[in-house]
Write a protein that binds this DNA or RNA. Structure first.
Length: 546
RNA sequence: GCGUCCAUAGCUCAAUUGGAUAGAGCGUUUGACUACGAAUCAAAAGGCUAGAGGUUCAACUCCUCUUGGACGCGCCA
């Protein structure tokens, strides 16, 4: 724990200092891990901010601040120096680094858990693919991101619920049933045309064929129900293979079909509520949501002339339900093709009395499949998309998840199937997993007790760099939580692997000097802990042999 | 036409959300296995951050315009 812990500790010191200079406002300084080309453990920008308010030279302020830091934090900071325009660069004492290393060794897989975190309930809603077909590769990216954010938040100590919203009512389910029914009849030899707007994928025929094989009477088959159930089973199986499990499956029928004692659904009620509050209005036989009041560029239809509700109406009721379940924060993962939807749902939750930031929508860009640098067709003529399962069967869950988590969600992702399968350093998954394999190959043959090793013997540059890298995991997780972006963790693991392999080249672990050997064994244990923990938060395994 | 996101090394992408000399991996070139796993390491080359203005001590990051891409724009879900 480098940055955030230290920021906390410094806050009072800096505020007092600012007050002594006659500044009453809060100083919004940051402590950061400096760019790679800077030789320092942490950098502090407070002097520049204070100097700006005082209209004076930041380097003078920095010098005064340095004296105070040296005095107050001598146990943590061994060197503080001015750099650049007025940055204060800080270097940790060896004792501090060893202490943090010990924390990793003590806490093991519980390292970086936060003790004083707010116990707010957070919901992460993701995938939520319609049960009209198997998950495709795009759903996979959403699943990986949503699941990893949840794992990270959970690890830090938040109370997280992962939910899948199931759009299992509405016309699409009828179309699904009819599609299967038509295929069934065609397979039975009837010469009938397929539906114009039916689902054309091969999986529809597969379901029809299964139903035929089961030999039930045509009249007895509820095609809609059978199709829905079977597809949902497939989705659940795929998610299981992808190591994604949901805490909760929320069916749209709960809010759009189920009625209370007055014969009203949740959708009926929320629309009435919005109408009463003046957030909705009727015009030309249509019920409109006045979303322009909250920044949307058009008002949106809630209820059509034929009396049926739109998808939006369900979604508003669904979000109302989320907040009724006391989620302080709601995170939704949507494919970027739904971006037009953000403004209206943001508008809706504000009408329901929530603050705008009670809902965070993470949009992820679509995935392009590539094989050896050449684009792969994403859908076939028959209407099948490349399914998540196909990709999982080909490259494995580890590689698939890691690749999805490699990039920021708002950048388009090229997924190279051949690269993901490679077992060389070109493939970052193996590069990182190899670290643990190397550690374990030494550790499993080491029979002595290394606890109580003298960690101060770890004093080469490679060893110290490695320790610093390991103990910054906590900061990385906090950054991931703050930005809701797990890719920082992926990048961190690759960097950590890099630092480890460098250490490994330079510092032999097993050797004559038994005291140093012990200390390095302890370091290996810490590396193994951090890599395993980090990968597990991405949902990736870390085998001890590869 | 309107809107959202994007444009960074040959390629794929980072840059801790306004901070220092813009970093990685791959690819390329050159080295390192009679030491714990060479699935590795060391070194080099590679950049006017698409272009033009602006805001400020400080801009890849914020604002305006231009160019080029992806995706939206239904009383579909």
């Amino acid at each position: 724990m480098l940055k955030f812990n230290f920021e906390e500790q410094l806050k009072n010191t800096i505020d007092d200092f600012a007050k002594s200079k006659g500044i009453e406002e809060e100083i919004k300084f940051v402590v950061e891990i400096p760019p790679k080309n800077i030789n320092a453990d942490l950098a502090l920008n407070a002097a520049m901010i204070i100097a700006k308010k005082m209209r004076t030279n930041p380097r003078i302020i920095a010098q005064e601040l340095i004296e105070i830091i040296k005095k107050d934090f001598s146990n943590i900071i061994k060197l503080a120096e001015i750099a650049g325009a007025g940055f204060i660069n800080l270097h940790f004492t060896d004792e501090y680094l060893q202490g943090e290393l010990n924390k990793i060794l003590d806490k093991k897989e519980n390292y970086a858990k936060q003790e004083n975190i707010k116990q707010d309930k957070i919901m992460v809603e993701f995938v939520s693919a319609n049960p009209t077909g198997p998950l495709h590769i795009g759903h996979g990216r959403g699943a990986a991101i949503g699941d990893s954010i949840s794992r990270i938040l959970k690890h830090l100590g938040y109370n997280v619920v992962k939910e899948y919203y199931l759009n299992d009512v509405g016309n699409q389910m009828n179309v699904l049933g009819e599609s299967v029914k038509t295929r069934y009849r065609q397979l039975k030899g009837e010469d009938i045309p397929f539906l114009d707007d039916g689902y054309k994928g091969e999986y529809i025929k597969d379901i029809a064929q299964d139903l035929i094989n089961e030999g039930k009477n045509f009249e007895d088959i509820d095609f809609k129900k059978e199709s829905h159930t079977r597809i949902l089973e497939t989705i659940k199986k795929d998610l299981q293979q992808f190591r994604v499990d949901f805490d909760s499956w929320f069916s749209e029928s709960k809010i759009a079909v189920d009625k209370d004692e007055n014969g009203e659904t949740e959708v009926d009620k929320v629309c009435k509520y919005l109408l009463d509050k003046g957030n909705a209005f009727e015009q030309d036989g249509v019920l409109w949501l006045k979303s322009t009041d909250y920044g949307d560029d058009k008002d949106r239809v809630l209820k059509r002339t034929d009396g049926r509700y739109t998808y939006l109406a369900s979604d508003v009721a669904y979000h109302k339900n989320k907040y009724e379940r006391n989620f302080a924060q709601v995170i939704n993962l949507w494919g970027a093709d739904h971006h037009g939807y953000v403004a209206r749902i943001q508008a809706a939750i504000q009408m329901l009395g929530q603050k705008k930031d009670a809902l965070k929508v993470i949009l992820y860009q679509l995935v392009s499949l590539v094989r050896n640098g050449q684009p792969v067709a994403m859908s076939t003529r028959s209407g099948d998309f490349v399914t998540l399962k196909d990709v999982l069967d080909e490259v494995g869950t580890d590689a698939c998840r890691f690749f999805f988590l490699l990039r920021a969600s708002d950048s388009q992702l090229d997924f190279d199937l051949e690269l993901a399968k490679k077992q060389t350093s070109e493939n970052p998954v193996f590069y990182v997993q190899y670290v643990n394999a190397r550690c374990q190959s030494i550790l499993r043959d080491y029979k002595e007790d290394s606890s109580g090793a003298n960690l101060s013997l770890l004093n080469t540059k490679e060893e110290k760099d490695l320790i610093k890298k390991l103990i910054s995991l906590e900061d990385i997780l906090l950054i991931c939580a703050k930005t809701k972006s797990p890719h920082h963790l992926t990048t961190y693991l690759i960097e950590t692997a890099d630092v480890y392999h460098r250490f490994y080249e330079k510092c032999k672990v097993l050797q004559e000097n038994k005291e140093l050997e012990k200390a390095r064994i302890q370091l290996l244990k810490a590396v193994s802990t951090i890599i395993t923990l980090g990968l597990s938060l991405l949902g990736v395994s870390s085998p001890s042999k590869m």
